[in-house]
Amino acid sequence: MSLERLTLERRQVWLYLTMITAGLLVGSAWPDLGRFFEALLWPILIVLLYATFTQVPLLHLRDAFTDHRFLAAALTGNFLILPVLAWMLVQGLPPDPALRLGVLLVLFVPCTDWFITFSQLGGGNTARAMALTPLNLLSQLLLLPVYLLLVMGNELAAVLGLSDIWPALVVVLLPLLAAVTSEYWITIPERRVVLRERLAWWPVPLLALVVFLVAGAQVGAVRGALGQLAVVVPLYVLFLLLAALSAKGLTTLMRLPADQGRTLAFSLGTRNSFIVLPFALTLPSGWEIAAMVIVVQPLVELFGMVFYLWWVPRKLFR
């Protein structure tokens, strides 16, 4: 990864904050643009997910199984411990199903892209991080409906059916299939790999555009939900602390080396916010807070990663 891209990814939180502010200002000044922003949001999300998925080695899934202890720790942490932890944390939130759904959506799914960058910056095992990403991606797509059915089955079914979420399924599955096809095409011949490197620059500016559009389209919902948004920020901070401590416990239990423990901490601490954003955007009127809390989460997470980069290699896994 180039130094320029590392610098961009380390400072991306300020870009997102700027774009959210700009979106709120534009949405307040010209509220009629809301429908245009909502229409533009979907194709931008497709391109964003495609650019992100191309960075996941989807054709190298079996590489994840080369280290069974690390794999067991990562799967146990991401798909057993953290979902239970997320469910426990939302019990302290106001009894608003839309608010709780948004938090659960984003905390249930582990990151598949920038946690590799933070693992590299934090002295983790980058090879293990890259090998884990395709398994994390496929597992979350399969398990997310199961988790939501278990914790919010009746409430969710009352407002959302399969006919309502098909646009979100298309937005996620279409770029995923395109990325699988692209990966095969890019690697044969190998000189096309430069295309993947160019696509790796896209997610940060595209996500900045997405948060601008969401803020501009939902400015009214944001104003009405400021109090609720403030409630979820401490929850996300607590989640970051508990995720890292869970990684420490799993690393000790599985007797992993320190570099793999750091990678595990960054994997458990980072979430896949924009893969669940399309599903939140399909929710009916009155449930806009779900999308808002999903947009807020990566901002808290990125500040948390600044702390992680000091805490994880210097204190937690020396």
Rank of each mutant, 00 (worst) to 15 (best):
A178L: 15
A178S: 11
A179V: 05
A179I: 03
V180P: 15
V180I: 13
T181R: 10
T181V: 13
S182Y: 05
S182A: 08
E183Y: 06
W185R: 12
W185D: 13
T187Y: 08
T187P: 13
I188P: 15
P189G: 07
P189Y: 03
P189R: 03
R191Q: 12
R192F: 04
R192W: 03
V193N: 13
V194C: 11
V194W: 09
L195M: 08
E197G: 06
R198G: 11
R198F: 07
W201S: 02
W201K: 03
W202D: 02
W202T: 02
W202M: 04
L206H: 07
L206R: 04
L206Y: 00
L207E: 02
L209R: 09
V210E: 00
V210F: 03
V211I: 11
A217S: 11
A217K: 05
G220Q: 02
G220S: 04
A221N: 15
R223P: 14
G224I: 14
G224L: 14
A225G: 12
A225D: 05
L226G: 10
G227R: 10
G227F: 15
L229K: 04
L229F: 13
A230M: 15
A230V: 15
V231K: 10
V231W: 12
V231L: 14
V231A: 11
V232G: 11
V233T: 10
V233L: 13
P234G: 09
P234L: 13
P234M: 13
L235R: 09
Y236E: 02
V237Y: 09
L238F: 13
F239W: 08
F239V: 04
L240G: 11
L240D: 06
L241Y: 12
L242M: 08
A244I: 10
L245A: 07
L245S: 01
L245D: 00
T251P: 09
T251C: 10
T251G: 11
T252N: 10
T252I: 14
T252L: 15
L253T: 08
M254W: 14
A258P: 02
A258L: 13
